[in-house]
Design a protein around this nucleic acid. Sequence first.
DNA 1: CTCCACTGCGTAACCCATACGCGCTACTAT
DNA 2: ATAGTAGCGCGTATGGGTTACGCAGTGGAG
Lengths: 257, 257
Amino acid sequence: MSDTGLPASLEMAWGLRERPSKGPKPGLTLDAIVTTAVQLASTEGLAAVSMVRVAKALGVSTMSLYRYVGARDELYILMQEAVTPPPPEPDPTAGWRASLTRWAHAQRAAFHRNLWLLRIPISGPPATPRSVEWMESGLSALSGTGLDEPTKLGVIMLVSGHVRSEAMLMSDLDAAYTARGLAPDDVLRRYTRTLAHLTDPERHPAVTRLLDSGELTGTEDPDADFEFGLGLILDGIEALISRGPSAGRTKPDKRAP
Amino acid sequence: MSDTGLPASLEMAWGLRERPSKGPKPGLTLDAIVTTAVQLASTEGLAAVSMVRVAKALGVSTMSLYRYVGARDELYILMQEAVTPPPPEPDPTAGWRASLTRWAHAQRAAFHRNLWLLRIPISGPPATPRSVEWMESGLSALSGTGLDEPTKLGVIMLVSGHVRSEAMLMSDLDAAYTARGLAPDDVLRRYTRTLAHLTDPERHPAVTRLLDSGELTGTEDPDADFEFGLGLILDGIEALISRGPSAGRTKPDKRAP
DNA sequence: CTCCACTGCGTAACCCATACGCGCTACTAT
DNA sequence: ATAGTAGCGCGTATGGGTTACGCAGTGGAG
């Protein structure tokens, strides 16, 4: 009946389960484990977060951790949950556009604060308290737009997809210059040079034009890039909304092929 | 001078390097290795592609592979390159919107054909022949729009970000139901039920409204979702273009803070 | 005909996740 | 009080992985 199908540690996160009070006093806390793992990820990247390393950092044996966490992937989810801040407070006076903009920026900030988040492989739909809070927050930013519910969902998924994309780019760049010992600018400069070597003005006229234009803002000014894309998306949403409340998403009624 | 900084196998992909003709005849080809790896990924997922497994499938020892490929990540890149089709032929009669739409669809199709592609961790900017071809193709779709070069780049990155996002969702869903033995629909149904259990109409009114609406098209009809998002983005681009050629991307001249 | 660049590969060092079961602890029900 | 038992930490073992290193042989270049 009330079986959520969720792992035990996640049910704890939802407050559905207490730690039992039977056996010997636990020497560890889920919190301590997750905090240590997060610290490790912040300083050495997600790849450094292995059960062995976390246990060593806590001064316990590897297998102890499995009393608290079902598997490594579960630990990853808990780490994500731990560093994800609550969504911004709703501002009833603000319109949908301002609200959604704030929502997107907050989400982006969270990713940028912990770039390793983007390295966590997603294994299923979000089922943590925080992720549902963010979903709630995003949806409610669109109340008053007259869009129907599934369309709202489509909109916030589009926006958060954009956020993820841009943050992923940052994460990649970060990984690239963490691997070698280079500065971010160096990586980009080196890349531009390499590209210039490899491209052929004949076969790649457009790329050549871009390189010749000098201003490779590609990833140089991430803020501007993000803002630019978000602006375009919001413009598209605006067009959708003003097209009338009934428009919604045209459900293509599949005719027989 | 002509040092690209690229790994040897990638330089081969660009045709910059021949296999030397000295020692004993190579018993393997890069092609054979990559093909085997791709096959393995298609049938058992990217996680099954280990040097050990690939070597075993080829009937050679593990270490032999390292004569052809510098590291596992390099093999991943070569796999990506191998399965990525060339971008669609440009159609000079088509406008930018049709061209870009075709471009996006082709890219999406490539991802959907090989969902494991999305599981490859990106470690740097794209530097393979195919990825440059796609870049070229995307940029040239926007010639005639009057946008300046960096803006064009921003636009195609936005679009391909959307493609990636949607495909990633598919890949996640796929991973979820490959892991357990469930059908895709079951995963979604189960998720909806779980979410309904966990959410509280008081704390999550908007999510509840969504769930009550019945039509959880969230990931149910991926095509429609993708089309919807792409349409919004293209609308945004259209607005940008018609705003005038000089508009470009407003470069925020950073005033002193 | 000699040289040596290049071949495949065996070995081994080093990571990792996790199943299983032991000895023990301390709460709960009697 | 006391027995029962759920829960604890952890040692051991299994089975996976990547990759450095160096050997013995090969065959084209000089």
